[in-house]
Simulated scan of single mutants.
Amino acid sequence: MSNPIADPGHGHSPAAWTAVIIMLAAFAFGTLFYWLDLAHLVWASVGLLLIGPIVGWIMAKAGYGVNGPKYTPKAH
């Protein structure tokens, strides 16, 4: 192949990983709190779930996104 298609780098940045980890933790805690019948903590987990993408967006704007100056691409 003389002209391979480049990987756009979706999800391979500190901003993306941080957002996903926050949302995964929120979902796991929300499930646990639902099972334990702790409604106020379930709603707190929903709030944390909404904070995940916001943190990812802020980190991307701070330069930790795929095309940011603080991001170092890794070889696959």
Rank of each mutant, 00 (worst) to 15 (best):
K70S: 10
H10L: 15
G63R: 00
K61Q: 11
V20F: 00
I21W: 15
Y71I: 01
H10V: 15
G68E: 04
A75C: 08
G30C: 01
K61P: 04
V42N: 06
L24R: 11
P73G: 07
T31L: 12
L36D: 04
I51R: 08
L48D: 03
T18E: 01
P73A: 08
L32H: 13
N67W: 14
V55I: 04
V66Y: 02
L49C: 05
W17R: 14
S13L: 03
I54P: 01
W43M: 11
V20Q: 02
S2V: 06
M59Q: 03
A60G: 09
I54C: 08
M59A: 03
W57G: 01
P14R: 15
A39M: 11
V55N: 00
L32W: 14
H12F: 13
K61S: 09
G65P: 00
G11R: 02
Y71A: 05
L38P: 08
W35H: 13
D37W: 07
L32K: 10
V55C: 02
F27R: 08
G11F: 00
T72L: 12
S45R: 00
D7W: 14
D7A: 14
P69W: 13
G47H: 12
T31P: 07
F29L: 14
A25M: 15
S2M: 09
L41S: 03
P4N: 10
L50W: 13
G65S: 03
P53M: 02
L24Y: 11
I21F: 13
I22R: 03
I54L: 11
A15N: 09
A6R: 15
G52P: 04
G65F: 00
Y34V: 02
I21Y: 11
V46H: 07
N3F: 14
L50V: 12
H10F: 15
L41A: 09
I5T: 13
G11Q: 06
T18W: 01
A39Y: 06
N3P: 07
D7T: 13
D37G: 03
A26H: 10
V55R: 00
V66F: 06
F27W: 10
W43S: 07
S13M: 05
A60E: 04
F33G: 02
Y34G: 11
M23C: 02
A39H: 08
I22V: 05
G63E: 00
T31C: 14
H76K: 14
A60Q: 06
L49G: 05
W35Q: 12
V55T: 03
H40Q: 12
A75W: 09
W57N: 09
A25C: 14
G9Y: 08
G52S: 07
T72E: 12
P73E: 05
A39V: 12
A60F: 03
P14V: 14
D7M: 13
P53T: 01
P8L: 09
I54S: 05
L38Q: 14
K74A: 15
I58C: 10
F33N: 05
I21T: 11
H40K: 06
A44H: 04
V66C: 00
A16D: 09
F27P: 05
F27Y: 10
M23I: 03
F33T: 04
G63W: 01
Y34T: 08
G52I: 03
L41W: 10
L50M: 14
G68L: 02
A75G: 11
M23W: 08
A16L: 05
S2D: 07
A60T: 05
A15L: 10
I54T: 07
P69V: 13
A28N: 08
H40A: 13
A75K: 14
M23Q: 10
L48A: 11
G56V: 04
L41Q: 07
G56N: 04
L24V: 15
